[in-house]
Structures are given as structure tokens and as C-alpha cells.
Design a protein around this nucleic acid. Structure first.
Length: 175
DNA sequence: TCAGTGATTAGG
DNA sequence: CTAATCACTGAG
């Protein structure tokens, strides 16, 4: 895979613990008008992995909301939370293995709610396919950033085992 | 530190 | 139908 090329099916069909960190430094492209697109480098992600992961929405089973997580890698999982914010996730892994990477930060917009506000993401992106969509996709780069890890944010409801997993991936913004 | 805000879910 | 919950943010 080369810089500027769209990340394909094979990229997303792997385990989310590979996909989530590798998304860091990649370019998220979003259509903003008829022939207008904006490009943002992804700077922070989190991995949610399978029905065992108590922090993963799919740990409570297959529902209308989590259905797309059970689909093949490359789909988009969007959901609404706290009455105000859309969360943008990229589904990873094989069919029937519910995994997704939450996009927590892009260049200029740190925080999952701020990301979707900047990109104007809403429910209409639910189940969109990143490998074929004409309005959103991810491109490869030559960037190989120094990736830091830490525990995931906002999942206090999960047990300690899962709460402490270092499944948040990010790069510090250059100052 | 804490309220706002409404989709989603489980339960009666 | 009701009520609880929530992968957050901005104001104070």
C-alpha cells in the first residue's frame, strides 16, 4: 500500500488492535461539497474489541445500534451519546467479530465529539463503506508516527481488567 | 466540578 | 409505556 492510496478491505479486516494504532498518521478524507474535499491527519484512536470487552458496546449483545460492528471491517459505526454528540468509529475485523476503532482526534480537533462536529458526521454515515464511499475514506501515508498508548476514556462502567487495557493510541501534537 | 441533552435499551 | 444510562463537552 502506498501513500495517497485509499486504505482497502484488507487493512480493515485485521484485528482492531492492529487497525486502531495504524490509523494514526493516516489521512481522513471527507467530501464537503460537490467537488470539495477536506483532509485531516488522524491523531488519536481507541480500540473496542469483541463481545468480551466490557467497554465495547457489543458486550451487551447484538442490537440495532451495534449491528454494524458485527459486519466486515471497513464499515462505519456511528452513534449518538449524551444527547449531543455523534461518535465516529471504523469497524475492524472479520464478520461476526464485533470490533471498532473510535476516532478520538484529527489534526485541529481533539475529542470525538469535536471530530464529528468538524466533519459534520451524523447517522447518515451509519454502515457507510470506507473502501467504496464517495464521501469519506482514509488514505495511506509515509508517516510513521511515534505512537503513545494509554487507557481508554469514559468507560468507568467497565471492570478494571478492561478499563486498564492500554487501547487508546495517540500522538502528541507538535508545538 | 457538573449540567445539558436525547437516542437507545431493558423491563413492565 | 417508563426510566436509566451514556466511548462527551464547555462553562465556571
Amino acid at each position: 500500500m502506498a501513500a495517497g492510496k485509499r486504505l482497502n478491505y484488507n487493512f480493515f479486516m485485521r484485528d482492531v488492535l492492529k487497525v486502531a494504532p495504524e490509523l494514526i498518521g493516516k489521512i481522513l478524507v471527507i467530501r464537503t461539497g460537490k467537488n470539495a474535499f477536506r483532509r485531516y491527519m488522524i491523531t488519536e484512536t481507541e480500540a473496542y474489541r469483541g463481545s468480551e470487552d466490557e467497554a465495547c458496546h457489543a458486550s451487551k449483545g447484538r442490537t440495532a445500534r451495534t449491528e454494524v460492528m458485527y459486519h466486515e471491517g471497513g464499515k462505519i459505526y456511528v452513534y449518538f451519546v449524551y444527547g449531543m454528540y455523534w461518535m465516529l468509529n471504523f469497524v475492524a475485523g472479520e464478520k461476526n467479530d464485533p470490533q471498532a476503532a473510535l476516532i478520538r482526534g484529527i489534526e485541529g480537533f481533539i475529542g470525538p465529539g469535536r471530530v464529528t462536529k468538524a466533519l459534520k458526521i451524523d447517522k447518515s454515515y451509519y454502515d457507510e463503506d470506507l473502501t467504496t464511499s464517495k464521501r469519506i475514506w482514509v488514505e495511506d501515508t509515509e508517516i510513521r508516527p511515534d505512537i503513545k498508548t494509554g487507557p481508554r476514556i469514559g468507560i468507568n462502567y467497565a471492570g478494571d481488567i478492561w478499563k486498564n487495557k492500554p487501547w487508546r493510541f495517540f500522538i502528541i501534537k507538535n508545538s
